[in-house]
Design a protein around this nucleic acid. Structure first.
Lengths: 212, 212
DNA sequence: GGTTAAAATAGACCGGTCGTCTAGTAGCAT
DNA sequence: ATGCTACTAGACGACCGGTCTATTTTAACC
């Protein structure tokens, strides 16, 4: 089976190198030539592995969200004291990545880097990212629900809305951190998250927009 | 003095057209040629008005933040029933722009569109945007403080931190809205904002990260 | 070992990139 | 009118963008 995986290995190598490059320079900011050279793959080979740059971008994003979601599931399956700990461990990872302690994983987030660029550029890429975040938010909501079920978190606003709102906040925090080169927004988000989860019983976040 | 303003008018025209184009296609995604053609300005003239594409980008962003901040000051100076109304009017503008009702102004925000791209691309552009958001957050904090002073909003978490947290949330909401083509995140942000402003007395967002 | 199909590559293609340069026009002051 | 500056004009260079066709290398099979 090494023959099959040989091609797959090359494909993966391109994707991997592409990820790193795109994270730094954006999608349109990176040329195929650059990716290929960095991957040690000859230029002519690109269209053997991908039908177009856009398809390459989709694969890149798909691989990323798959990996991310898998990590989430791993966290969901991990046995930890309670649901609240699990949830806060997730947010903590935004601040400081699981392996690399200093560099949080917010600076490595492709959603943060590419969402705005991709949204107007390619419908296919947009969809991959959009569905990815949707699935992610669903998992966060699940975490909240479980934490409430085991009593480690008080009830309050509906979990799905709260999850979305929290994710939004962290997304914005990551963007602002990227922009200001200061981690204060991330810390702010962490503290706000704690506060919101505990006292969300008071703040009614309900899904009807009826009010003046 | 029409001579001076003639050149200035052309410069402004380039900036204006550039704004629209960049908003759709990103900064690196737009070529000078395209901007110039759309502006009706010949290609050779560009380097008379701007020393480089980067400088053009800085001017573009500077013009944008100046305009935005001016709009904020206008809102701050407007006489409205109370501070809370003023503040919520600001957030309301994110949802539905002042003039164009359907299309909220979140889709037209250059910070949302360019922050991630510019942060790694150009230090100069990054700084313009970063200082812009900083000033913006300060004005939001001021609004919160004034609303508390006139009694239309209860006290609670320190205004600067709250302002930053709210802005982050809206930034993330705008990004998610751009990505999903669904305004639900924006509505979510609006409701969460109301809840947070009113019940922030309970949720202590204090700047010490001491707890298990 | 020779045939054949698939995997992988080389390199040309055309158009666009930013930026430079020189020649030229318009408008005003003296 | 002359000279001077502000501004326009577009060709030009070197390079890089994504894409494609033709070609070579590799492996499989009998």
């Amino acid at each position: 089976m090494t023959q099959i995986s040989k091609a797959e290995a090359t494909r993966r190598k391109i994707l991997e190198t592409g990820h790193a490059l795109v994270l730094k320079k954006g999608f349109v900011g990176v040329g195929l030539q650059e990716v290929l050279k960095a991957s040690g793959v000859p230029k002519g080979s690109f269209y053997y592995y991908f039908p177009s740059k856009e398809a390459f971008g989709c694969a890149l994003l798909q691989q990323y969200v798959d990996g991310y979601l898998a990590l989430m599931d791993q966290l969901l399956a991990a046995d930890l004291p309670d649901g609240r700990t699990r949830l806060m461990r997730y947010w903590g990872a935004w601040l400081a990545g699981t392996e690399d302690p200093a560099r949080g994983w917010a600076e490595d987030c492709l959603v943060v880097k590419l969402a705005a660029e991709v949204a107007d550029l390619s419908e296919d890429m947009r969809l991959v990212l959009s569905e990815g975040t949707e699935a992610l938010i669903a998992r966060i909501a699940q975490m909240i629900a479980e934490a409430r079920a085991d009593g480690s978190l008080p009830g309050g606003a509906p979990a799905p809305g709260l999850a979305q709102m929290l994710y939004q906040m962290w997304l914005g925090a990551a963007l602002l951190t990227k922009l200001s080169r200061d981690r204060a927004p991330m810390r702010q988000a962490y503290e706000a998250t704690q506060a919101l989860l505990v006292c969300s019983g008071h703040s009614h976040i309900h899904p009807d927009p009826e009010e003046d």
